[in-house]
Design a protein around this nucleic acid. Sequence first.
RNA 1: GGGGCUGUAGCUCAGUCGGUUUAGAGUGCCGGCCUGUCAAGCCGGAGGUCGCGGGUUCAAGUCCCGUCAGCCCCGCCA
Length: 589
Amino acid sequence: MKRTAHCGQLRAGDVGQEVILNGWVNRRRDHGGLIFIDMRDRSGIVQIVFDPPTSEEAHAIATEVRPEFVMAVHGTVQRRPQGTENPDLPTGDVEVIAGEAEVLNPAETPPFSFVDETETDELVRLKYRYIDLRSPRMQRNLRLRHQAAQATRGFLTQEGFWEVETPILFKPTPEGARDYLVPSRVSPGNFYALPQSPQILKQLLMVSGVEKYFQLARCLRDEDLRADRQPEHTQIDIEMSFVEQDDIFRLTERLFAHIFKETINVDLPIPFPRMTYAEAMRRYGTDKPDIRFAMELTDLTDIAEGCEFEIFRRTVAQGGQVKGIKAEGCGDYSRSQIDQLTEFAKVHKAQGLVSMAVTESEIKSPMAKFFTEEELGQIADRYQAKAGDLVLMVADKPEIVAESLDWLRREMGHRLGLIDENEFAPLWVTEFPLFAWDEGEKRWDAEHHPFCMPHPDDFELFQTDPGEVRAQAYDVVLNGVELGSGSIRIHRRDIQQQVFDVLGIDPEEAERRFGFLLRAFEYGTPPHGGIAPGFDRLVMMLCGENNIREVMAFPKTQRAQDLMSGAPSPADPDALRELHIKLDLPPSE
RNA sequence: GGGGCUGUAGCUCAGUCGGUUUAGAGUGCCGGCCUGUCAAGCCGGAGGUCGCGGGUUCAAGUCCCGUCAGCCCCGCCA
C-alpha cells in the first residue's frame, strides 16, 4: 500500500477522500469493538478508526498492533461525529475510517516513551537516539535546523557567495585547541589533523579569487565538552574580499534577520547595536553580555579608595577595583539569602560579597560602620538606589570583579524575572584585544588567531604595550550567547611579521607551521575578512533549547562518547599494524 | 585534572531516625471485559544485582570509603 497522504495534513476539506497512510502507531485505544489508533508520520498525527462493521480484517490487525509498529492504512477521511472533535490536534476535526490495514513492521516495546509528558533521562534518549528523534520536539528541532541551513544557503547564494568544501583531512590550524589526529597509512608516522575550522583554507580561497565564500563547515576540536560545546560542530563559515568590518556586519545582520524570519518568523531588529570589548567588560564584566536586561556593573573604586573599610582600601591600593550591581526590590533579603549569594559569588572566584540594603531612612549593611554618611550616600546615588533596593559589591582584581559580577548579574536577572524569554537581543562586540598574556607560559598569545588585522591606530603599541593593541576582530552575541567570531585578516607580510614577533614565532617556526599560507600571501592577496557564526548555537536559539545536543542528531556525551554506537572503540589490531601504530596504554586496574 | 548534582521496576519517581512481613506508587508491558475514545475506562498478573565493589553494624536502598556512568560548572576551548 503506497502512501497517498500524510497524517498531519488531513483537514475538514479532505472529507470524503480515500487515502493510504503510512506511519507509526503513536497510541492505541481499544474499546473492544471499536479501536482508535493515533497514527504518526513526520507531518503529524491523525486518528484512525477501526470499526468491525466497516472491516473485520482491518479491525483484527488493529487488535494486534502495538506502539511504534509501522503500518499502512487504507481508508476514507470523514468528519468526526459531533462532539468528538479534538481541538488539541490540527487534524482533530477529521478521522480516517480504516477499510484495509497492514503491519509493515512490528516493533519491540520501546524502552521509553515520548508520547507522555514525562521527561526521559538523556542517557536513555541517547542510547536509543533513533527513537528519541521521532519525538515531536526532536523532529521540530531537526526541521528547524534544516530550514536554517536552507535559509543560509539561499541567502548567501543570492548575495553572490560560492559554497566551497574544504578538506577534513588537513594540517594543524592555528586555533589553539587540541587537534584530532588521523594517521596516514601511505605515509607511516605522519598524521593529518582534522580542522578546528577552515580558517586558513578560506583565506587561501580569497587569494584564489573566490571573493565571496561560505560553507556549512564541520569543525573538530579535541577539548572537553559543555552544554554548548561538542567535539564536532558546524559553523557558517564566511569570508569576503575587498571588504571592511562594516560590510561584514551588514551582511551578517541581514543573514541573521533572514534566517530568523524564514525559520521562526521573527523580525530581528537591524542593524545590531555595537559595543567595544572594553565597554562590554566595563558595563557587564563579560565579552558576551545579555543585554535583554540592564543591571549594569557600577564602578565604586573612587569611593572605595578613601573609605575606612580595610578590604576595599587595600584592594584599590593594590590596583584592584570595587564594583557592584543593584538588585531592585531585594532590600529585604534575609541574612541567609545574602549568605547564599555570597557563596554563589565565591564559587565564581570572588573573595566575598558586600551587601547594602537601602531603606527609607538609612543604608543597612554589615559594613556600614566603616563608611561615612557621605560615602554611603554617594554609593546609593551612583546606583540611583531607591528604598527597597539591594546593592551587591565585589572588591578584587579587575578580572575577578568582572567574572563574579557577571555571574551574579545573570543569576539575579533570572531570579527577578528580568529576562523576556521571547526577546532576541543581538549585539556586536568590537575591538577585541589582539594579544592575551599567558601568565603560565609568560608570553603573549593570539586572543583570536594570529591572522587578525590590528586596529590601524594601535601599531605604535606593539613594542610598548601589546596588551592594549586592539584587533579588527568582533563577536556577534545573542542573548548572552556568543554566536560567532570574525575579523579583518592581515593580508600584508610586514604586518604579519610584526604580529609573529610579539607572539615569539620566529621565521623558522612560521615557515614550518603555515609557510604555505605565507607564501600564498606573496602572490597577490586581496584585503579580506570574514566571520563564522556557530550553526548549532544559532539553531539552539531558534529552537529555544539551552543545550546544543538537542539540535544535533547524534551528539556525544561529556566524555565524548556516542552511547548508541559505543564509539570510540578499540581498533582492529590489523588496522593498527598497517598504520605502524603500537599502543602504549596506562596500566588499568 | 578539580568542584557540584544524580543513579531504586522498561520509563518517571517515593522510600522518614539504619529496623513492620515479600522494597512501594504512577505509567508502560502481559491477560480479561468493554463501540466514540483521544493520558480511554474497569479487573487481574508479571516485572528489582536499590549503578558496581568493599567496609561499619545484630541489622544497610538508607551510614562510611572507593569506583563507574550521566548532567552542570572550573580548568581547557571561540
